[in-house]
């Protein structure tokens, strides 16, 4: 069952990532691109989790944790940049 479902799920997440990339490329505004980048980083966590299930290991969980934190900090920094015109006030 799971061996049948996993390729479909990975395909769906990869398609989602392609859609994010497309939105990031066409914009049109800067917040649009940041939103696309943030969604892309969350989708990467999804891929890592699917990889965990496929390989039956927890080795990649560390990567998911770091992605979650770095993605959030990066998005906050980019938003601050737009709000104030400077990353560090």
């Amino acid at each position: 069952m799971l061996t049948l479902v996993l390729p479909i799920a990975i395909g769906a997440v990869v398609l989602a990532m392609a859609l994010n990339l497309w939105r990031m490329a066409i914009g049109p505004t800067r917040p649009d691109r940041i939103l696309a980048l943030d969604t892309l980083s969350i989708n990467t966590i999804a891929v890592v989790m699917l990889l965990d299930i496929a390989l039956g290991s927890v080795l990649y969980l560390e990567a998911a944790l770091i992605l979650a934190m770095m993605g959030f900090v990066g998005t906050v920094a980019l938003c601050k940049f737009i709000l104030s015109g400077d990353i560090i006030e």
């Binding site: 799920a9 997440v13 398609l15 299930i53």
Partner: peptide
């Protein structure tokens, strides 16, 4: 399997919306 399918489907839906 059901959780994996649902999760992937909602992930895709979010990006379709985007």
């Amino acid at each position: 399997s059901v959780l994996v399918l649902l999760g992937a489907a909602f992930t895709l839906l979010g990006s379709i919306g985007l």
